[in-house]
């Protein structure tokens, strides 16, 4: 890996609302915008449930696991991902120091906006 290299993208073709139910239970997250489209509708957020933030950064972490062990990561949340969205996790190498690799990373909604951006450091798998 060298500076400027793009990481292989990880694509979720359609964000599945059933997975949000698993995440809600794991997170003990009572927010119904992740579960009930009637609630998102009532709140003026559209008719599709909203993916949990940890799942959004989790797609990026999953991409990174293919390269090595995550040592540190910092994420900023810019917007929502909703059920049915196609999302693409990607990254670019910004620094290499021995087996430590720094990257800028992102999660984009296809046809929409960037949902997550961040920086990460990984320790390359040997």
């Amino acid at each position: 890996m060298k500076v400027g290299d793009l990481l292989a993208q990880r694509v979720v073709e359609s964000v599945d609302p059933e997975k949000m139910k698993i995440a809600a239970a794991l997170l003990r997250d009572p927010n119904m915008i992740h579960l009930d489209p009637a609630v998102t509708e009532r709140l003026g957020m559209g008719s599709r449930v909203v993916n949990q933030g940890p799942l959004n950064l989790g797609y990026v972490h999953t991409l990174l696991e293919g390269y090595g062990q995550v040592v540190a990561s910092r994420f900023r949340f810019h917007g929502n991902v909703v059920a049915g969205d196609r999302v693409v996790a990607g990254g670019r190498v910004t620094a290499v120091d021995g087996d430590l690799v720094d990257c800028e990373v992102w999660l984009d909604v296809t046809g929409g906006a960037r949902a997550v951006s961040g920086t990460v450091r990984i320790r390359r798998a040997r």
Partner: peptide
């Protein structure tokens, strides 16, 4: 939930 493959034995997903 993430569509992630199995991880290294004994280690949790970073998320």
């Amino acid at each position: 939930a993430l569509g992630a493959p199995p991880g290294e034995p004994g280690l949790a997903h970073p998320t």
